[in-house]
């Protein structure tokens, strides 16, 4: 039980996917202009991550022990199919949301956070429950980072900032400061 909590907290805060491992930076910087969109993308991320955890567990248990060299290819194809599924579901259930997320939903496929999740949980030798907890923690962590950055960015819009600094450079520096704050979470379980 203790170990599960540690895995969760580690993925959520201490080793936050976005802020300390730099995974999933494209949507992090691209879809963080508005708080609400950022939050929705975060939710989509959690959903895909949970699916990824289930899929990679199944692959690792039944397929990849016989053919480890197919790991990367099979992960990607299975994850891509999972994303396709989410995309279809969202398109049908909430066309508004589909419009808001735009091109970033298919981009989750080429999102390092998703593949990174599958690879890291394989490398760490996580079992079914551990993998699932890891995925939920990581997904929540990504959402948290997105929402935090989007919140700060919404504030900066009305500030007087030189035009040169606006854009990616400013976002990266804000992200750096948030990441600095997250370093304070290290050692939470010492």
């Amino acid at each position: 039980m203790n170990e599960l909590i540690w895995i969760f907290i580690s993925a959520l805060l201490v080793n936050n996917f976005t802020l300390s491992m730099f995974l999933g930076l494209c949507p992090f910087l691209g879809v963080s202009a508005q708080l609400q969109t950022a939050f929705r993308l975060g939710l989509a991320n959690i959903f895909v991550m949970v699916i990824t955890a289930l899929a990679s567990y199944a692959l690792n248990t039944w397929v990849l022990i016989h053919a480890p060299y197919l790991r990367l290819i099979s992960f990607i194809i299975v994850i891509a199919s999972a994303v396709q599924f989410v995309e279809m579901a969202i398109k049908k259930l909430s066309p508004e949301l589909f419009k808001a997320l735009g091109i970033f939903l298919p981009l989750i496929t080429t999102n390092c956070a998703i593949l990174g999740l599958a690879l890291f949980s394989t490398n760490k030798g996580y079992g079914f429950l551990e993998g699932l907890i890891y995925a939920i923690g990581a997904g929540l962590g990504v959402t948290l980072a997105l929402v935090l950055l989007a919140g700060v960015r919404e504030e900066t819009r009305i500030l007087q900032i030189p035009r040169l600094v606006r854009g990616a450079a400013l976002n990266l520096i804000i992200a750096g400061i948030i990441s600095l704050a997250f370093m304070g979470f290290a050692g939470l379980f010492g």
Partner: peptide
């Protein structure tokens, strides 16, 4: 990690 963000931010 924060140094990574800062370095790229200032390079941009």
């Amino acid at each position: 990690p924060p140094g990574g963000f800062f370095s790229l931010g200032f390079l941009l």
